[in-house]
Amino acid sequence: MQPTEILGTLVHEFPYALFGSIIVGILCSFIGVYIVAKRVVFLGAVLTQVSVLGLTATFLPLFALPHTLGSLGVTLVTVLVLSRLLTGRKVPRDAVLGVVFASSIAVRILLMQKAPKVEVAEVESLLRGDILFVTPGLFFLMAGAFVVVMATYLLFFKEFNYVIFDPDTAATQGYRPAVWETLFYVLAGAAISFATHMVGDLLVFGFLVLPPVSAMLITRNVTGIFTSSVLIGAVAPVVGLFLAFYFDFPSSPAIVAVAFLVLAISWVQSVVRIR
């Protein structure tokens, strides 16, 4: 297959996969800058697993809700509980996240044992990251979430930055850091939930970490970091899907591998620049 043919096939036959992974790439790479800056990368991994747990639960007759609703509900409840637990002093932050991470995977495996066989295959396909069969309904849901979440982050860009950089001083000026922090996590949780349902946990977690870290290595200003991260998040799915078609690779790992390659180049560039 010629490169132009591959691109044509992607645009005409898998538009929802292509454009869906681009908007997930942009949104998660943007949120990822904050996640990395707040040193809560593990939270990204936890929320993707919790989202998959919520999704898996909806395959059981007992919790027969729409998949997206199940995923969103469980993720948002976890976010609200975590926003309380993470500020406590009795158990370290990492340990709290570790407990939720391990438990959500264990419960998901138990639930899958009780789900009908055909639906287990659907969950497993999601976990492998087969994004080529994204449905129009899921795509438009994700596009709606993208608009709402991104618009909120951009409208309150300066407030989020202030509260993350210096919550104590922000509090003396009348800001309520706990409220802003909860809003941040609710938005991130909703975005991660929709995105995980659409493209799988590997791709979402990859986008939350790899583009922001690359951007921090190649750029030395805050606006540049957000812009570079979003650009990497937008381009990596296109290149990754192209390579997946060309070499017959699974799509999600191919996209994450492209993002990792960008990270490796960024690291080399930053080392050379320092010397």
């Binding site: 993350i164 950089f165 104590d168």
Partner: peptide, 30 residues
Amino acid sequence: YVPQREILDYVLPYTVQQVVMMGRYRQIGL
């Protein structure tokens, strides 16, 4: 308020100008 320097988060490279502008955020408004 001038906090202890050690409690600030230094991951993102805010410029001096951006840091000082934070002092105006309340007056600027949401």
